[in-house]
Design a protein around this nucleic acid. Structure first.
Lengths: 340, 340
DNA sequence: AGCGCCGCTGTTAGCGTTCACAGACCCGCT
DNA sequence: AGCGGGTCTGTGAACGCTAACAGCGGCGCT
């Protein structure tokens, strides 16, 4: 009779405790109306058998799992990677698991496949890390009955979002250069079609325009240190008179600094540089990088908050405003007064 | 009749195609013995209804899902993060999903919980990113019938593993310094209890000993740029005569270079520095960092290979040798001849 | 005494798949 | 004609759980 070698199931626990499997289920799910004595018996039986409930069966019966799906496009970049990490932490703290699907590119078909995969797993909600414009459009194709939240730039009608205030951060960075007396300030922007790159560009432009200063055509990078290096070379060639540069992320800033250094240009003696992201090593670069800190831990936590709220909500169509997490300028040694 | 708003299920497809649900299942699973004509009808019906199979139900019925569980301890570090990324790619290419569980610390209980969570999800195998000694011990507690593979340093009896050859990489790095004529070579090791840190330490020691040189007590870092900076300070204080440093990872190396630079010590003019990891920005640091490249893409791919092989194997106890992925020294500008 | 309600428990019927088995049909062979 | 074997298909029963409902006492109320 007792020859099954597999893991014990609910029925086994029920039998040992002398109750029905449903009572075991009730204990497991903290239902009210279970006598304390019965609960203790069941708990004891579970412990004795080393019972673990089968989450697959649970998900099937409930037609929902406690899993939050995450769709990401490039998890090697600093922002997405950091968000992913904090998301996992926050989700676990809230009692959810995360299932990450990375999509090679923001092609609608690839995105739809990712959604299908998650829906097929009965996830209870999804977080979309959609930093690109194309990804946002495609987000409209989410099933209407699936709670969702967008992060890092992307917003779509009816879908709540959590974003770092890129625009404000960029303004802070630019104003910092302005306050130091710089007037010839260039910008190295991030990848085309990325909303974060555009918001940072806008912040720079706005701050410059407000100060009545000339806007140079932004140099274009792809977030990588290599592209920052290239931008540094071009900067020197085109505008040797520039004394301040706001670079759209730290990796590019680091490449740019290197290009300047090679040419004998001192940072911050001759050119001041501000980055964005505040990567862990920013403080230990040469020179320590002035940059805009992004609180990804907060972003992850707020995402889970919003998603949990959405899952409880009756109306699927979201009316509220995006959650905005502020950025914070961290002044280090890569910026200084204008040389004369 | 047709008033169900939910997603179509197998029975719906079967009805529309005029076959039984079992035939639909057969088409879905590429079973032989389905007439071509029938297959076409079923496929058409699936397309018409937009049918997607429910992976939860499938996992329950098969008592196994197509999900590879991953247990990781700190996904913010470069190694684990890179491995995780490539693992996900490789798994997807092989038709598997990944379910990542990060564990705050290598405590046995936390590890057991993580395993339970994955088992409860009926994963078909697990990859353990176990860079710490403690994690390895604890790995012996894996269910015997669960295919597993360890990565990045950790090996346990009976469990296959995939590792980068840290020892050899460290030897390459040290020999490079020796070849340049350095004799006073210090080492900054990584976090205590990390196997990678120990293997790199061993490689340095071996190379030094083979050259008949004096071994200084290694300085201890925690992989962070900050700790590298601290190590740089201490290095100058204790051994100003040192002309070469092998640092156990790039982030610490970068901090150390900064500490030296602040003190007016030129790299590589007065001191040569070699790192480990070859992070994306290593090439664009000042100076461009000589370091040991690790092929994480290969590691991830081999992990999946091994796991798939294991899942097909009859014997659960693994007999073979660890898969070793070689490291490769990349010489840049942070190393040079001995000053005189 | 009889009624209804609350606290607690058990029974039954799914959830949407796959597995095991049992057919039905067609072919070629004896 | 009968029989075996390969093709193809359908039926029923799992898989391990939760949801819905029914049932059973005991209490307080009219």
């Amino acid at each position: 009779m007792e020859d099954r070698p597999g893991r014990p199931v609910m029925a086994d626990v029920a039998e040992l405790a002398g109750v029905s499997h449903q009572t075991v289920s009730r204990v497991l799910n903290d239902h009210p109306y279970v006598k304390e004595e019965t609960r203790a018996k069941v708990l004891a039986a579970m412990a004795e058998l080393g019972y673990r409930r089968n989450l697959t069966a649970r998900a099937l019966a409930r037609r929902q799992s406690d899993t939050i799906g995450v769709i990401a496009f490039d998890t090697t970049l600093h922002g997405p990677a950091s968000t992913l990490f904090s998301l996992e932490q926050a989700a676990r703290a809230a009692g959810y698991q995360t299932q990450v699907v990375t999509v090679p590119d923001p092609h609608p078909q690839a995105f739809a496949d990712a959604v299908d995969r998650l829906v097929a797993q009965s996830v209870c909600g999804v977080v979309v890390l959609a930093p690109q414009r194309a990804a946002v459009q495609v987000m409209a194709g989410l099933p209407a009955d699936l709670p969702a939240v967008a992060v890092e730039g992307g917003t779509a009608p009816g879908v709540p979002s959590v974003v770092v205030d890129q625009f404000d951060g960029a303004q802070q960075a630019t104003r910092h250069l302005l306050d130091l007396g710089h007037t010839e300030i260039a910008h190295v922007r991030g990848r085309l079609d990325w909303l974060e790159a555009e918001a940072r560009l806008d912040g720079w432009q706005q701050a410059m325009t407000a100060a009545g200063l000339r806007l140079r055509e932004p140099l274009v990078g792809d977030w990588s240190a290599r592209s920052g290096y290239a931008a540094g070379l071009e900067l020197q060639r085109r505008w040797p008179e520039v004394t301040g540069v706001f670079v759209a992320n730290d990796h590019m800033a680091l490449g740019l600094v290197r290009a300047l250094a090679e040419a004998g240009v001192d940072v911050p003696g001759q050119v001041s540089v501000v980055g964005f992201d505040d990567i862990a090593e920013a403080e230990f670069l040469r020179p320590p990088l002035t940059t805009v800190h992004q609180d990804f831990a907060e972003v992850g936590a707020r995402c889970v908050d919003v998603l949990v709220e959405r899952m409880g909500a009756a109306d699927r169509w979201f009316q509220g405003r995006p959650v905005v997490v502020p950025g914070r300028l961290v002044v280090r040694a890569s910026t200084g007064p204008v040389p004369r």
